[in-house]
């Protein structure tokens, strides 16, 4: 019991710090990559290659004045950023980083906890993130924020559906809801080869769920100023910012786990393969933002309900038929 608790705490500590660090440096990576894609240099003043830029940003955000808008709802206004950030981080509890390893004679699984309903857990926890956006928009007492919040809730409910359905093909093939079992089932063939359609749907919905371009309507800066977090400043704003990047890492990690075989790969150690796959997805996220224009709101809803949802159902049908006929 004691050994279990100690290893759990150590794992939580490492993973938590790793995620926050990744999120912080993801901002650097994004600025650097977007700059390169737009033939600019990007941050290059603070430290070598601008590597200290995230730290400078963090200090700046800490020192800024924390503004509470007039007639805003103080309690909900303060609650919203936390509600946004916490589910994003907590979702990592079930994502496996690597196979179990021997440390000082103990067998340690490189996952905080392997539950037998891991996929459902991640879906449930990530679906809570929308509350942060909705409450922020409502509590700010501002039209732009409210419009952003309404868009966010409609968008996230719509795309969550296809996101959940796109995973079912993988679940049928793996025969388990545990993420560790799903990775083990991809020992020989990665599920991206068996589920290409499911993978594409998952990726599209994942981008929409994290409110990233081209689905960044809740914060569309050119029409809604900044959407749900217009009124936020200082650390509260930073928490929304962190939440967005942590969510990107979550979706990338889930995509790598469900479709790209998690830690499996030749030569390199398992953890390195996992990190590599996650960063490949993060690169894709940033690349998409630099390349694709934002959708219009009606296009977004039509695409979600009339294209992605039927495709996801078709994917389940075909997968079920094939697996059923083989059995």
């Amino acid at each position: 019991m004691a050994a279990f608790l100690i290893t759990a705490f150590i794992k939580i500590f490492i993973v938590f710090n790793l995620i926050l660090l990744t999120a912080a440096y993801l901002t650097w990576l994004e600025r650097k990559l977007i700059a390169r894609l737009q033939v600019r240099l990007g941050p290059n003043r603070v430290g070598p290659f601008g590597l200290l830029q995230p730290i400078a940003d963090a200090i700046k955000l800490f020192c800024k004045e924390d503004i509470l808008p007039a007639r805003a709802n103080r309690f909900v206004y303060t609650l919203a950023p936390m509600v946004s950030l916490i589910p994003a981080v907590v979702a990592f509890a079930v994502i496996p980083f690597g196979d179990s390893v021997q440390v000082l004679g103990y067998k340690v699984d490189l996952v905080i906890t392997d539950v037998n309903i891991g996929v459902l857990y991640v879906l449930a926890i990530t679906s809570l993130g929308v509350y942060g956006l909705v409450l922020a928009g409502w509590a700010s007492n501002s039209k732009y924020a409210l419009l952003g919040a309404l868009r966010a809730s409609a968008q996230m409910i719509s795309y969550e559906l296809s996101l959940g359905l796109s995973v079912i093909g993988v679940l049928i093939l793996a025969g388990s809801l545990s993420l560790v079992d799903i990775v083990r089932a991809q020992e020989r063939v990665w599920f991206i080869l068996l589920q290409p359609l499911g993978f594409l749907i998952f990726l599209t919905c994942g981008v929409a769920e994290t409110n990233r371009a081209p689905f960044d309507l809740p914060e569309a800066e050119t029409e809604l100023v900044a959407g749900f977090h217009v009124e936020y400043s200082s650390m509260k704003f930073a928490m929304f910012f962190m939440a967005e990047y942590v969510n990107m890492v979550t979706v990338s990690a889930m995509a790598a786990t469900l479709f790209l075989g998690g830690w499996h790969g030749p030569l390199l150690p398992p953890v390195a393969w996992f990190m590599l796959k996650v960063f490949a997805f993060l690169f894709l996220f940033i690349w998409m933002r630099a390349t694709l224009p934002r959708l219009r709101y009606d296009q977004l809803m039509r695409f979600g309900w009339k294209v992605l949802l039927p495709l996801a159902l078709l994917n389940i049908l075909v997968t079920g038929l094939v697996v059923g006929l083989q059995a």
Binding site: S127, V130, Y131, V134, L135, W138, L146, L150, S153, I157
Partner: peptide, 13 residues
């Protein structure tokens, strides 16, 4: 929590 209550909040707003 993930769907039904979001719908409530959506309608209230």
């Amino acid at each position: 929590a993930g769907a039904i209550m979001v719908l409530y909040l959506f309608v209230i707003m």
